[in-house]
Design a protein around this nucleic acid. Structure first.
Lengths: 257, 257
DNA sequence: ACCGATATTCCGTTCAGCGGAAGTTGCTCA
DNA sequence: TGAGCAACTTCCGCTGAACGGAATATCGGT
């Protein structure tokens, strides 16, 4: 976490909010102070104001969590609502094929940000909830974004390939070969590279100017042999979705990054 | 909009953010200034700081909208993530019965806040996206919350019954009778009371102490005759979900209101 | 060319925000 | 039982960040 020391009030307020992430959804006052690197007294005051605004909640045990105000503002973000309205029908159709989780990921720095997902009761509980940031080299959606990404992006990612399972690709040459193949085939495939038991397929979503702006993926148990037959359907869905997004003028998802 | 004049910086910052709602997802600087009742110069400065933080986006045409930072913080709200994890499987099962939209609503002042929804491609495009605030007297989920709500709540709502369609119940006595029936049956039914062509069923979700904390609803086209057969299933799902929520300790959804 | 609305830059004043110090609560360990 | 520690809260005098009026710039409409 590259913590910029903020001097404006709003900056400090967001330093406080930024200490919240998927692994720190509930924090005590002292935790927030440590993580934001702000004086405890300052955090105390800010947090109280944020609670008064409904931006934070204090639960009964004294810990703080993100409040309802932020949530209801968040769903107004076009990232969420525009994309969701257009993409959900396509995702739903894919879901019906085999009740496998379906997800959409965006490039976010050197990670893949999951912005939408559907999953049912029988779906394997994936790591990739909305808001999750998956590694680019170890997920279907990630590899798609990487394959179609810029030279700089690929260089940056290839330099440090973290290992998640014993099938994670940590060899740069091998990964490069795969990226080439992904562009040839038009879709990516991964098997237990991020989590044991999970297999994924993913296809690129295009914005205007044939630029890849997102990836549409499907996650299924590793013992599901049918999955490869789904690939053409996935690619077709991604293409149809691309056209819809461009027609709706939502082709610059990148600016949301 | 009861605009409190805010004197703290955070207060002012949220006055700015609060001008964004479902009907004002994209606003110009001047619009924000007018709606927040803050001096233009002040808003100008605040908005620029918020853009720098990623809390707002400025799109190419100069208008501002909620940014990605707020979105990613919002999905950390327990309102969203805790409830979602537990409720989605049940909602998904109901959805599979007939591909009708399924929704969960919470009491929020004199309205029903939709916090979760699933819907597919063929689903009629309902008004009730997540974040929507439905009237209590003219929606299935709303009527459930109203029926099990406090005397004060009922009084407040019954005092002014807005009309949305020609089937909207605007007669207080008639509505009172319905509320009683809802408590007897254990579920609510509405037909084109909010939007023409839509019919809904809804059942209460209980928290600890047998308090109704939310409502689970299903929205279907008005010509769907099967729907009444779903009622017992809906009630059963709502009860099962209630138990799960209590077991998980998420029985005080009300504090999120 | 003129007008009205919107957006941006400038700058002197002042009060909201700051954070160290000290006090309170509540826990753990000897 | 009480000393010690950590989390939390209250107090208060100093100061620079926030404020917003005025001037300027930009855009679109007629």
């Amino acid at each position: 976490m590259a913590v910029e020391l903020q001097k404006s009030v709003t900056g400090r307020a967001f330093s406080v909010l930024d200490t919240f992430d998927a692994n720190h959804r509930r924090q005590t006052l002292a935790q927030i102070a440590r993580r934001s690197k702000l004086p405890l007294t300052t955090v105390h005051r800010l947090v109280h104001e944020l609670v008064a605004q409904g931006a934070l909640n204090r639960s009964t045990d004294g810990a703080y969590e993100i409040g309802r105000k932020i949530w209801s503002l968040g769903i107004l973000a076009s990232l969420h609502s525009d994309l969701r309205e257009i993409a959900l029908p396509y995702m739903e159709d894919l879901y019906q094929l085999g009740n496998d989780a379906v997800q959409i990921g965006l490039l976010d720095g050197f990670r893949c940000l999951i912005v939408e997902r559907i999953a049912g009761s029988r779906t394997l509980s994936v790591i990739s909830k909305p808001g999750a940031r998956l590694p680019l080299h170890a997920s279907g959606v990630g590899k798609v974004l990487l394959a179609y990404g810029s030279k700089e992006l690929q260089q940056g990612v290839l330099d440090s390939l973290d290992r998640y399972t014993d099938k994670t690709i940590t060899d740069a040459a091998e990964l490069k070969k795969q990226l080439k193949k992904i562009k040839d085939l038009g879709y990516a495939h991964s098997e237990e590279e991020l989590a044991v038991g999970a297999r994924t397929l993913a296809a690129p979503i295009y914005g205007s100017g044939n630029k890849v702006v997102a990836a549409l993926g499907i996650v299924t148990p590793v013992d599901n042999r049918d999955i490869m037959r789904i690939a053409p359907l996935l690619v077709a869905s991604a293409n149809a979705l691309s056209k819809k997004l461009i027609a709706a003028g939502i082709s610059d998802l990148s600016k949301l990054v």
